[in-house]
Amino acid sequence: MAISTFGFEFRQTAQDGAARTGVLTTPHGEVETPTFMPVGTQGSVKTLTPEEVAATGARIVLGNTYHLWLRPGPEVIDKIGGLHKFTCWPHAMLTDSGGFQAFSLADRRTVSEEGFVFRSHLDGSRRVLTPEVAMQVQGALGADIAMQLDICPPGTASPREMDEACAVTTRWARRCLSAKRPDQALFGIVQGGTDVRRRLAHADELAAMSFDGLALGGFSVGEPIEKMHEVLAEVAPRLDASRPRYLMGVGTPTDLVRAIGAGVDMFDCVLPTRNARNGQALTKQGRIVIKQARYKEDFSPLDPGCECPTCTQGYSRAYLRHLFMAGEVVVLRMLTEHNLHLYGRLVREARAAIAAGRYAAFARSWLTKDVADS
């Protein structure tokens, strides 16, 4: 189905097996795919400035609709002209629907055909999140890409619950399309757990609608990681090739390498930034837990092959450990920059490998040791 939203276009530029490169054109610039979107939950990628985020190679970030809805409120952001101006991020931006956060508040929410009713985790106020409200809030935030409201069941859900989640998500998809801002792209979200047949059936339902892209939701929610990889290999290559494919909330560098090999174009995950704040640096050789005593007199950089400022400016593992143990907040910035540079390097090298027809060799070089392993 042709893309119809003004200022938004996706075109594939190369393919190697199921892996592919492309260019996503948005009102705020082009994004080369595969791409990783750093997560800016509160309108900020934690500890970094927008300029520092862009220096990692990122040309699209994710904003969290739920948190921005509660604080400072979409009216405030709309008044300045949208989330781009509010956050001083000049490149492309995607906002999630808020549904995952609402659905995860198990002790604070109820769900019905109409939507979610929940209590704010900030002040306990009653909130109602319907497909129409999700579109209204995201329209006020003004990101280039909005996401439909969906039901995201846990990996342990029964087949009946999975079927119902797909059915409600489909009905909400139609309501979101009817309520979307005309100049904002909208992605549908494919559910179905780890059942390939259910996933493909739901993908077909959403592909028949005028979504600008298709996302795979409901992964990395309790199912075995090996099963997720297996299902992605079956499902992702069979999503409509004319639209971008987005794997939501996933994951480790290994997850990205495997999913890119299956044809996924877009990713987001809090792992690189969250792990940095916990004192973990990701390298191609393995994970470094900086507080460990073995780094007390280790004067080597985190990763000699890394081009991030933390590594190239000569900061040693011993110094970073000292900062972390002393509670100096600057180390959280330094580790975050490093981790996001690694993700930027991964997708940049993946694009080059696909264009050169050598993705399999590239994947093997990254999969020899999962960088999230200890």
Rank of each mutant, 00 (worst) to 15 (best):
G73H: 01
E75T: 00
I77R: 07
K79P: 01
K79Y: 07
K79M: 09
G81T: 03
G81L: 12
G82M: 03
L83H: 13
L83A: 14
L83V: 15
L83D: 12
H84Y: 07
H84E: 14
H84W: 08
K85L: 15
F86M: 00
T87M: 15
T87F: 11
C88E: 14
W89E: 12
W89A: 11
P90G: 14
P90F: 06
H91Y: 15
H91F: 14
A92Y: 14
A92Q: 12
M93H: 05
L94Q: 03
L94I: 13
T95E: 10
T95Q: 06
D96P: 09
D96L: 08
S97D: 05
S97W: 05
G98Q: 01
G98M: 01
G99E: 00
G99C: 04
F100I: 04
F100P: 09
Q101E: 02
A102C: 12
A102S: 13
A102N: 06
S104K: 08
L105R: 02
A106K: 11
A106C: 06
D107H: 11
D107A: 15
D107P: 02
R108L: 15
R109Y: 01
R109D: 00
R109A: 10
T110F: 06
V111C: 05
S112C: 03
S112M: 02
E113K: 10
E113G: 10
E113A: 12
E114A: 13
E114M: 09
F116T: 05
V117L: 02
V117Q: 07
V117K: 01
F118G: 07
F118R: 06
F118L: 08
F118E: 03
F118D: 03
F118P: 06
R119N: 10
R119W: 09
H121T: 08
H121C: 03
H121M: 02
D123Y: 01
G124Q: 00
G124T: 01
S125E: 01
R126M: 12
R126G: 03
R127E: 14
V128C: 04
L129A: 03
L129C: 02
L129P: 04
T130D: 06
T130F: 10
E132W: 05
V133R: 15
M135W: 10
M135V: 12
Q136F: 07
Q136E: 15
Q136M: 11
Q136C: 02
Q136V: 07
V137E: 01
Q138R: 10
Q138I: 13
G139S: 06
G139V: 08
G139K: 10
A140Y: 08
A143V: 13
A143L: 13
D144F: 15
D144K: 08
I145E: 03
A146K: 11
M147D: 03
L149G: 05
D150Q: 09
D150E: 08
